[in-house]
Design a protein around this nucleic acid. Structure first.
Lengths: 116, 116
DNA sequence: TTTAAATGCAACCCCTATGTTGCGCTTTCG
DNA sequence: CGAAAGCGCAACATAGGGGTTGCATTTAAA
């Protein structure tokens, strides 16, 4: 029914910046390190990345803009951590979108095959 | 086990271009139209997008580079369609990566909460 | 065989994401 | 207090993504 289509239209604007944020190797690694090693300071997160601390700061803000990570002050450090709730929501978004593609394609599969 | 980590290391390089390809509104809409309406020519896919046919062509190639869509000749037209197998694999990639983040975060949740 | 449709190719913009350096501010520590 | 660690801010450089225009090429249609 047309409710599927409107639901997709609502999710799409959210999905775009989410995917864009995930489409970078440095940011994916940051998420990996945060998931493996709890809250970490910027300096810690910069070690071994091959880029400067400022570059890492920007990547963290990019992830923060879509809600995947959060930050807090701790003394003179600024520690960042995963936002697990947002991460869960993001996963559901992705699953739903993928499911829609699957469903629509599945419904038309026989028809499409006839045309080929 | 360390096998999880190495599996993640193998998936990450594939996930980056995949996410990057999905991080664009025009490309997400193209996938939506293809999933809803079978194979379509470039001219058809360009209608109503607000950008030129050449721009759409590039977006299709971007999606094609990560295997999400394929093309074929049909007369003087070039028709593009979803690659459902690749779409399925992409979905599984995403699920696995998200699951890893979840798992790692879950294992450390209590520890992290202690520190806060 | 003309004409028009559908593309492919290539040269060009233009903006922004990514990265850097330099400097100043705050907090911690000897 | 004085030095150093950890950041934030701002200016700057630059490569690449996204878009356009112009023209040649192939194929369908009159």
């Amino acid at each position: 029914m047309s409710r599927n289509r409107s639901a997709a239209a609502l999710q799409l604007p959210d999905a775009v910046p989410l995917f864009a944020a995930l489409g970078d190797a440095t940011r994916l690694r940051l998420l990996g390190r945060l998931s493996a090693g709890g809250p970490l300071s910027i300096t810690r997160l910069s070690e071994g990345t091959g880029v400067t601390r400022q570059a890492i700061t920007r990547h963290l803000h990019a992830l923060g803009d879509v809600g995947l990570v959060r930050h807090a002050r701790r003394g003179r450090e600024r520690v960042w951590d995963l936002n697990r709730k947002r991460l869960e929501r993001a996963k559901r978004y992705i699953d739903q979108i993928a499911a829609q593609w699957d469903d629509a394609a599945e419904r038309l599969r026989a028809f499409v095959e006839d045309q080929e």
